[in-house]
Design a protein around this nucleic acid. Structure first.
Lengths: 201, 201
DNA sequence: TTGCCATGTTAGTTGTTCTAACTTATGTTG
DNA sequence: CAACATAAGTTAGAACAACTAACATGGCAA
């Protein structure tokens, strides 16, 4: 049998526990002690693997970004490069991720001070955003979309991100409970990406 | 002179201190004890005015929403109803507010659980969002804009909110440091609101 | 086998939220 | 105007979280 003095996988176990607690408790005010109890170790154990509570949070956030990027890739890969569906899928994954883990999503997009350029969080975040933008850039190139592709990409990202934020905060529900958010994004994205005049005045 | 046993304005003093600390410490992890030290009272004093730390935070957030709405009104009132500048101003105030008090902005848009319908936070938040939407609805009505005005309003709100969020989190800077965010919003908003085909293909 | 060192432990410090029991100022009322 | 009820402070302390220091254990390497 395994003697229990050494956990063996404590580092990742703590990260997983933290992520779960963040999801359950709906906020970054989760307790590290709780994570320790989950992992079955003492409250001093984390400090063999992390310098800080902040460092654990950063790790969770970084893995969140990696996760999100992975889901983007998987969803997009079902369609050929340049397909309109790829962009739609990326947007949908973005929204779904936020709804699935709202607290984590919020923490991923809450700038933490003292975050250096070479930090894993920065790296994973960058990669995640870059993926989204590149997907739009590819679409524009392949389909010969006119205009500043970078600008269009940022606008789409902004729209979807705003929609994700306002959705998980329940803000749409406060002022427009009847609205279909998916449709709102779809129509907005079409106007930003595709040429779809409302009407020729 | 004033004898110092009774503060007199402690409730609002604590709210103000909390708001300042939130601004300085960049997060909702500010300490109530700190706020007490600022206000010059003991750490037990707040509980004569608030049941909870959460209740203080809610008060700060509610006043934040009231503030934001007030700034909208002031900025918009410089132009006549139906003027395009009114919408531009509201968007600009939205962004400026977020940049000015990023942590407060984040807390305003972080859904707190156990928030009843008749809470001040809910009320002030609703009023704030409703103002933004109404401004767009008015524009559409007065100028005879075709299409679902409510939908357009939500799209504009979403775009501006997304831009505010990504700006204060420094996310644009990570992947597109050269971009002019104001211009990006302006162009996006134009495409959503006004008929501005990229080019007749 | 022996000893090093990574990784765990217990115990204790500091700081936080919140409660209980006590104190002081204020304003109302006979 | 005296008396007291009450609002709004106080100190003391409980419960708990983050983190540190000093100790314990066991896996690995010479």
């Amino acid at each position: 049998m395994k003697t229990s003095y050494h956990h063996g996988e404590l580092r990742q176990a703590l990260i997983d526990a933290a992520r779960l607690l963040i999801k359950e408790r709906m906020g970054n005010d989760f307790s590290l002690s709780d994570a320790c109890r989950r992992a079955g170790v003492s409250t001093a154990a984390p400090y063999r693997h992390f310098s800080d509570k902040t460092q654990i949070i950063n790790e969770v956030v970084a893995q969140g970004f990696a996760d999100m990027t992975g889901r983007f890739r998987t969803a997009a890969s079902a369609f050929p490069p340049g397909a309109r569906e790829r962009i739609v899928m990326v947007g949908q994954v973005y929204l779904t991720f936020a709804i699935d883990e709202p607290s984590l999503f919020r923490m991923m997009f809450s700038q933490r001070p003292n975050l250096s350029e070479e930090d894993i969080v920065t790296a994973q975040g960058k990669a995640c955003f870059a993926y989204v933008i590149q997907e739009v850039l590819d679409y524009c190139t392949i389909n010969g979309v006119e205009g500043d592709a970078q600008m269009i990409a940022l606008q789409l990202w902004t729209l979807v991100h705003g929609a994700a934020s306002l959705t998980i905060d329940g803000d749409y529900a406060k002022v427009a409970p009847q609205i279909d958010i998916g449709q709102m994004i779809a129509l907005g994205a079409e106007r930003l990406l595709f040429l779809l005049p409302r009407r020729a005045g």
